[in-house]
Structure formats: C-alpha cells, structure tokens
Amino acid sequence: MVIVNALLQGVLLGGLFAMAALGLSIAFGILRVVNLAHGEIMTIGAYLAAVGLSSLGVSVWVSLLAVVPLMGVVGYWVQRLLLQRALTLGELAPLLVTFGIAIIIPNALIELFTTNKQAISTGDLAVRSIKLADGLYVGVLPLLTMAVAIALIAGTQLLLARTRIGRHMRAAADDSETLRLLGVDHRKVYAAAMGLAFAIAALAGVFFGMRQGGVTPFDGQLMVLFAFEAVIIGGLGSLWGTLAGGIVLGVAQTLAGVVSPELPLLVGNLVFLAVLVLRPTGIVRSKVVV
C-alpha cells in the first residue's frame, strides 16, 4: 500500500512538474530560447503571492488574478527589450541573457527577503485530503494542481491550434522572416509567446509555493531543473509529453522518497540522465506539435 500511495502521489506531483515545464516548452518551441531563468520566474510569481498575502492580506487565489497577468506583461517586455535583441546576435546570446537573469533574481531576493521561507498559506487546503482506501489518500491541493495542469496544457493546445495568435506563433517558429513578409510583426508574436510562458511559469510557481507552504530564493534553481527534466523525458516539443515526463519524474521522486528521504532529488536526476542515454536517437525534434 505504501508503494501504491507513493505511485499515486508521484503521478499527482507530475502535474506540478508538467505545469512548470509547460512555459519552458512554449518558449523553446516557438522562440528557440531555452530560458535558464524559467525557475526564477516561477519564484518571482510565488514571492508576489507571498508578499500579497503577508503585507496586503490578499488570499493566494485573489493574488493569482493579478500575479499571472502581471508576469505575462513582464514576459512580453523582457522579450521585446532584452531577448529580441539577443536573438539577432546568435545562438549564445539569448542563453547568456537568461542565465544573467537567473543569477540576478535569487541573489536580489536573498538581499530583499533574506533566505527565510516566505509563507504561502492556503488555509486547510494543503492538508485536506480524500480517503480512497485504508492508507490511501489523495491531497486536495495536488489533485487541484493536476487538474489545473491538464487544463493549461489543453488550453495552450487550443490556443495554438485554433486562434489567430496561436497560428502566428507556430508560423513564427517555422519561419519568422516569411511571417514578416505577410504583414505580421514577428516581434509581437514572440513577445506574446514569452508573455504566455512567463504567465504560466508564475502560476506554476505559486502552486509550487502552496505545496511547499512557502517559497525561498533557492527554489528557482530546483524548479528549472525539474521543468527541464520533464520536458526532455516527455520528448521535446510535445505538450502532452511534458505531462508524461512530469509524471515519470514525480513517480521516480516519490518512490525514492519511500526508501530514504534524502534520495528523491538524486534519483530524479539519475532517471532523467538514464532516459537521456537510453533514448536511441537522442533529443533532436523541437517543434511545438498541435
């Protein structure tokens, strides 16, 4: 029963990883930018929610309404002002710019908020659970997280497949110069995609914070690696694949946790590396598939 429980918890944890991975997948699939600061964007989202709670007394759910769109706007302008220029300079530049951001954010957060955990309280939601059988419980929050992750993936899929901006995003991923010849400003399309990625990252960050009961400046480094591992395990470019990847990673971590509380991170990383080695063709495909 312990194993079954761990499996179940792992699957649900996978929902969180998939949510974290989605933004990374969008940014890479459409802009070919690997955002090394993705985890830090999640952290910022969580900090905004935590600060909203502690200094304004706003509940997490209400603050999400502000935090998610706000980070979307931030993403839009980070793309337009920094990354767009970097994209014209070659392959290394965007990577180095996002790495710069990944260094700035946690250190600024430590200076501003110390290394202490900033609490993100959800009332009793974090502890409430549903009993399935003796010794088998599912938490309401993980369940909710999984539901939101599935909804986000489906929503992104619909956006890319059915809407005008989604079509433009896929076209920009194929050939941004030709898109320009057709009267579309590719910079706005890219910026919208990055805005979407940031908004989803912020949302995922808040959910991660709720699960952990708070957020620290070091969480970003953990989360960017989880998100990345989920993307790769699931197979680059497939949005539903990130969910599968997230679940594999989640299950690996929770099963390892049954053996020893020190093992989950190491085993998660090793499973990722094993997938990397065993997959016959390596990782080459990279387009967003709808």
Binding site: R164, R170, A171, D174, T178, L179, R180, L181, L182, G183
Partner: peptide
C-alpha cells in the same frame, strides 16, 4: 511587415511555406 500592410507583398524564392501548418492555415496567416 509594415510595407506588407501597406500593400507590397513578396512571394519569396523557395516558397517558404510554414511547414507545420496546414494549407488553410498558411493562407490564413
């Protein structure tokens, strides 16, 4: 892109279709 909006459109050498889009989607872009 602004020139295209003002009515000058280039059909480039090599066609350069958006390969992951359908024909209809290509037209709609």
């Amino acid at each position: 892109f602004e020139r295209s909006r003002r009515g000058v459109c280039l059909v480039p050498e090599g066609r350069r279709l958006f390969a992951s889009l359908t024909v209809r989607e290509n037209l709609e872009v």
